[in-house]
């Protein structure tokens, strides 16, 4: 559920940024935040997938 929530957060941030951009705001800083968050969420989800695969492997063995 945490991963679903993190994708929701990214989507919300992206939607707000696009709305702000379409109404004339300079949003470079916001895209930088989104990029940083994408990298962080990607890194965290890769880590959690690795852990769950390891657990599955151990229980199968």
């Amino acid at each position: 559920m945490t991963l679903v929530f993190s994708f929701l957060t990214l989507l919300m941030l992206l939607a707000v940024t696009l709305v702000a951009q379409s109404t004339g705001m300079v949003v470079t800083n916001y895209f930088m935040l989104i990029a940083a968050l994408v990298v962080y969420v990607g890194w965290k989800s890769r880590k959690s997938v690795k852990v769950s695969l390891l657990k599955r492997g151990r229980s199968a063995a």
């Binding site: 991963l3 929530f5 993190s6 957060t9 965290k44």
Partner: peptide, 9 residues
């Protein structure tokens, strides 16, 4: 992960 996302969401 949840806390950081919640603190922005």
């Amino acid at each position: 992960l949840f806390l950081i996302c919640f603190a922005i969401f």
